[in-house]
C-alpha cells in the first residue's frame, strides 16, 4: 500500500513538473484539470491528492508558489517551476524513459528467439 502510494506520488510529481513546464505558472485546480485531461481518469477520483504532492515539491525546492489572480479575476495560488525543478524534470523524464524502454523490451513477446 505504502509503496504503491509512493510510486503514485512520484508519478504525480513528474506530471506536475511536466505540466508546469508546458503551461507555465498555474494554480492547483488548473494543474489537476490538465493532468486529468492528459492522463484520462488517473486523477478522476481525487483532486485533493495533488496538494500534498505540490507541498512536497515546494519543500524540495522544485517549484515555488505565489498568490495571484486568475483569468476570471479569482484569487488563486500559482505554482511555477524553479531552475532546480527544470533540472529535476529533465532527470526524472530521462530515467522514466529508460525504465519504460527497458520494461517495454522486457515485456514485449518473443523477439529474442531468433
Amino acid at each position: 500500500m505504502g509503496e504503491r502510494a509512493d510510486v503514485w506520488q512520484g508519478t504525480l510529481a513528474l506530471m506536475v513538473l511536466k505540466t508546469l513546464q508546458a503551461l507555465g505558472p498555474l494554480h492547483g485546480y488548473g494543474i489537476a484539470r490538465r493532468i486529468e485531461q492528459t492522463s484520462g481518469d488517473l486523477l478522476a477520483v481525487n483532486y485533493g491528492t495533488l496538494y500534498p504532492a505540490l507541498l512536497k515539491l515546494e519543500q524540495e525546492g522544485y517549484i515555488s508558489s505565489e498568490w495571484g489572480t486568475s483569468d476570471n479575476n479569482r484569487k488563486a495560488k500559482y505554482y511555477k517551476l524553479t531552475r532546480a525543478g527544470r533540472k529535476q524534470l529533465e532527470r526524472e523524464a530521462r530515467e522514466w524513459e529508460q525504465t519504460t524502454e527497458i520494461l517495454a523490451r522486457f515485456l514485449s513477446p518473443g523477439k529474442e528467439s531468433a
Binding site: 494554480h27 492547483g28 485546480y29 488548473g30 484539470r33 483532486y47 496538494y51 486568475s70 476570471n72 479569482r74 484569487k75 488563486a76 495560488k77
Partner: peptide
C-alpha cells in the same frame, strides 16, 4: 490560513467551471 484560502480558491474555480 494560507491552506484554507487555497482550498477555497480551488473550489471556487471548480464551481465556476
Amino acid at each position: 490560513r494560507d491552506l484554507s484560502a487555497e482550498m477555497d480558491s480551488h473550489l471556487q474555480l471548480h464551481i465556476e467551471d
